[in-house]
Design a protein around this nucleic acid. Structure first.
Length: 858
RNA sequence: GGGAGCGUGGCGAAAUUGGCAUACGCAGCGGACUUAAAAUCCGCCUCCUUCGGGAUUGAGGGUUCGAGUCCCUCCGCUCCUACCA
């Protein structure tokens, strides 16, 4: 017998598979398709254990799917544009392209060493002009449809990365890449109008039962839909007089989800960044106070501002607005807890119903008018049914935010208030009639800021012409090539690179300037999964026919960190491409599997912490197959996985053991047999019983493993295979080898069990399986294109089963009964088995659960 | 503050629809083989026990013939999100 040596077996089969093109997509329309995809990596150095886990999960699904008769698409590529390449290039005095492609080759080699079944002919590399030209094309199509906008607004600026960031890329006020503090700056930038799709992006989450609830919840929260009303307040003078003919400048609109509390509005708030704020106080006695708040808000970084409960600061502006519902004069304040980029940046403050307004009112001595009360409030008897305002203060500890009954609210008094309450509907209707308000839906989602002032990205295909304004690059001129002759180590930037930006206006032909901003790298990852379906298409981004055949992705596997950014953007791109008419579906990813982290001693592995385990070291010791199987065995895929080298050694032992068992089963173990000491039973009955048990286990486990793979439960699938191996060991140990081999039927069964063990492990340990399948069992064709072993549920069942007999829910005895025994007979047997325990007591009833237990109730 | 999830042996975990809790593995302990060690193989391995049994899925309660699983209260942990009006 040849010993199991992964270091010899693995590279050999990897070479053979590649030469044979075993994993090239067959494009066989007679088979059902399955698209298995792992999130493509950013090429920052070699792959780490997190990647290995991600790709191993995908590889098992792909290999298993192939054995189940699917036409499988399982590609790999690189998200190759981005800032780390620039930083690394500057550090190493190199070029981002050089660094990027070198890392891609390293990662590609590591993936091959792990034995992943990718079709390498379909590789997509985002910084390849053949790919990014179609990203530019999609941008132009969006522009045609009015989904591209260039506008001036306060944006997130990361000084560390010297670029702007999308809202989604600011995590707790810090840059998602460098973790530096993000500032607000007023800049003119490019946006994609993802907000046009806000409602659909929210609604279609319901079309995704194959996504984790958690991820859908996170997306729904991010989109942040709120129903409410816009209400117009008109600026008035100190006597409360509004202008006879109010102009646009005289109106300040707020968004609220609680128009029912309008009678409780005792002051009015503007964000420090509110556009017209400076004008309101210019030249007045209040200018300085307001200015101080604005200055303080600018200084306080977004990080601190998002820390939450710091003391609220504000100042009176000296101005008033009129409450459109009751005509009251309300003072206007500036407050640092009002954010400018949600709603309108202006808020009607209702301190009795909002805790933040409550605290602000207490601090600055503003009235807290009770207008909504729970019926059990001590104040309720006094105010119940009161329409006119009789009280303007309360001694409450905090605001009241739940549902209640309106008081002191004019004709609305007595109505139920709260979100979606009758009072809300009535007040919105009345405001609409006056033209002072309208029902609105507000989203938290902002438009996607995609321009970046960086070199290593996809150029935005636009031209600035003095005469014609902003002009899209004609489709025929694509791609706008990113120049490679730029030396960023000397501080060169695109905006100074004449050869790049000097151009002629495509409309009038006069000298013009090319846009020098590049696109956010997330635009590259928002459609790469479509390119894989038709990667070499030179005349379009993809053929709709191919994309429609392969899409949606059936299994998408990746980290939870992409729950919002990448997954939301990709959904948006697909919906736009559908509306453009090149896709016939609305959602890109049918099933999403978010894999857990790989940890060491309870901590996430990371280079900066220095607690990583290098995949190549583990491969060098135990082989790729053991690493793969270990990763799948140690935890369910969506849970964090604690790295334990002892466990990996255990899996290596297991592969070794099954290797020898397979040799034993086919009579080829020779003197390396695990069971040579096994004189075994020569007793015919014992032999038959062991063989029957093995047969039953073989069928049971094949069914169980298929079921587990279908549910992505790789850990229990492997546990079941271990059980089959244990039963096999029991059999081999206790049956004299010559007896087995003399019996033709047993020889056939032994061979079948050997084949089953090899096939069940093939998706998990592909090289190990191939060596046994072809090397030992002498098959000419790869195990990875074999059909999944069949199983017979009848054979998986024993003729007799053991039932537990419970008395009042406690197990008191066990009985053996025939599988098809009549319920009455089972009941009789059970009563008999526990006769002593129930003696003298009345049996109320006996519940028989076939195949499981009998419960006798006394 | 809001939302989601989790809590089972020394450890990683299993129990798919409410039906024999602790499968499978790791570590540990004992044994076989060996001059010895490694490797390999076999056995033990939730806790208590007067050896009859009894208890046990974070704690307490409820529903049910039956609860790790469903409901309520509490405790603990994790993740996400946040002055979102």
């Amino acid at each position: 017998m040849k010993e199991y040596n992964p270091h010899e077996v693995e590279p050999r089969w990897q070479k053979t598979w590649e030469e044979q093109g075993l994993y090239q997509v067959s494009e066989d329309p007679s088979k059902p398709k399955r698209y298995v995809l792992e999130m493509f990596p950013y090429p920052s150095g070699d792959i780490h254990m997190g990647h290995v886990r991600n790709y191993t999960i995908g590889d098992v699904i792909a290999r298993y799917s192939k054995m189940r008769g699917f036409d499988v698409l399982h590609p790999m590529g690189w998200d190759a544009f981005g800032l780390p390449a620039e930083n690394a290039a500057i550090k190493n005095k190199s070029h981002p392209a050089k660094w990027t492609y070198a890392n891609i080759e390293t990662q590609r080699a590591s993936c091959k060493r792990m034995g992943f079944s990718y079709d390498w002919d379909r590789t997509v590399i985002a910084c390849d002009p053949e790919y990014y030209r179609w990203g530019q094309w999609i941008f132009l199509k969006m522009w045609e449809r009015g989904l591209v906008e260039r506008k001036d607004s306060p944006v997130n600026w990361c000084p560390g990365c010297a670029t702007v960031l999308a809202n989604e890329q600011v995590i707790n006020g810090a840059c998602w890449r460098c973790h530096g503090t993000v500032e607000k700056r007023d800049l003119t930038q490019w946006y994609l109008k993802i907000t046009d799709y806000a409602q659909e992006l929210l609604d279609d989450l319901d079309l995704l039962p194959g996504w984790p609830e958690r991820v859908k919840q996170m997306q729904a929260n991010w989109i942040g839909r709120s129903e409410g009303a816009e209400i117009d307040f008109i600026l008035c003078d100190e006597q409360g007089n509004t202008p006879d003919d109010p102009q646009e400048d005289d109106v300040i609109t707020v968004f609220t989800t609680r128009p029912d509390t309008l009678f409780g509005c005792s002051f009015f708030l503007l964000a420090p960044e509110y556009p017209g704020l400076a004008g309101l106080v210019q030249g007045t006695a209040y200018e300085q106070g307001v200015h101080d708040i604005i200055a303080a808000a600018e200084k306080v970084s977004a990080v601190e501002r998002s820390q939450g409960d710091h003391d609220k600061q504000g100042a009176f502006t000296g101005r008033y607005v009129e409450n459109p519902l009751n005509g009251e004069k309300v003072p206007v304040w500036v407050a640092d807890y009002i954010v400018s980029d949600y709603g309108t940046g202006a808020v009607m403050a209702v301190p009795c119903g909002d805790q933040r307004d409550f605290e602000f009112a207490r601090k600055y001595g503003l009235p807290i008018i009770p207008i909504i009360l729970p019926e059990d409030d001590p104040l309720y008897p006094e105010l119940a049914g009161v329409e006119e305002r009789v009280r303007t203060s309360v001694d409450w500890e905090r605001s009241f935010e739940a549902e209640g009954v309106l008081v002191q609210s004019g004709k609305y008094t007595g109505m139920r208030g709260g979100k979606h309450s009758p009072a809300v509907d009535a007040i919105i209707a009345d405001l609409s009639e006056k033209g002072a308000g309208r029902p609105t839906v507000n989203f938290r989602l902002r438009d996607w800021l995609i321009s970046r002032q960086r070199y290593w990205g996809n150029p935005i295909p636009a031209i600035h012409c003095e005469a014609c304004g902003l002009v899209p690059v004609p489709e025929a001129d694509l791609p706008v090539l990113l120049p490679l002759d730029l030396d960023i180590t000397k501080g060169e930037v695109l905006a100074d690179h004449k050869a790049f930006f000097e151009c002629a206006c495509p409309v009038c032909g006069s000298p013009a300037r090319r846009e020098t901003d590049t696109m956010d790298t997330f635009t590259c990852s928002s459609w790469y999964f479509l390119r894989y379906t038709d990667p070499h298409n030179a005349s379009s981004a993809f053929s709709p026919e191919k994309a429609n055949r392969w899409m949606p992705v059936d299994s998408y596997i990746g980290g939870i960190e992409h729950a919002i950014l990448h997954l939301l953007y990709s959904r948006f791109f697909v919906k736009v491409l559908r509306d453009i008419g090149v896709l016939g579906f609305s959602e890109p990813f049918e099933n999403l599997l978010t894999q857990g982290m790989v940890k060491l001693n309870g901590e996430t592995m990371s280079k900066s912490k220095g607690n990583t385990v290098a995949p190549e070291d583990m491969i060098a010791t135990y082989g790729a197959d053991a690493v793969r199987a270990f990763i799948l065995f140690m935890a369910p895929p969506d849970k964090d996985l604690e790295w334990e080298e002892e466990g990996l050694a255990g899996i290596h032992r297991f592969l070794n053991r099954v290797w020898r068992q397979v040799h034993d089963l086919v009579g080829r173990a020779g003197d390396q047999s695990l069971y040579q000491g096994a004189e075994g039973a020569r007793d015919e009955g014992r032999l038959k019983a062991l063989a029957a048990t093995l047969l039953r286990e073989r069928h049971r486990v094949v069914g169980k493993v298929a079921d587990d793979f279908d549910r992505n439960c790789f850990n229990t699938a492997l546990a079941a295979i271990m059980e089959l191996s244990n039963t096999t060991g029991e059999y081999l140990r206790n049956v004299a080898p010559d007896l087995r081999q003399a019996d033709e039927k047993l020889r056939a069964q032994d061979l079948d069990v050997a084949e089953v063990l090899v096939k069940l492990l093939a998706p998990l340990a592909p090289h190990w399986a191939e060596e046994l399948w072809q090397g030992l069992l002498g098959n000419a064709e790869s195990v990875h294109v074999q059909a999944w072993p069949g199983f017979d549920p009848q054979l998986a069942r024993a003729e007799e089963v053991e039932l537990a007999v419970q008395v009042n829910g406690k197990v008191k005895a066990r009985i053996m009964v025939a599988v098809n025994a009549e319920e009455e007979a089972v009941r009789e047997a059970a009563l008999e088995a526990v006769a002593a325990a129930i003696e003298g007591k009345a049996v109320k009833k006996a519940i028989v659960i076939p195949g499981r237990l009998v419960n006798i109730v006394l």
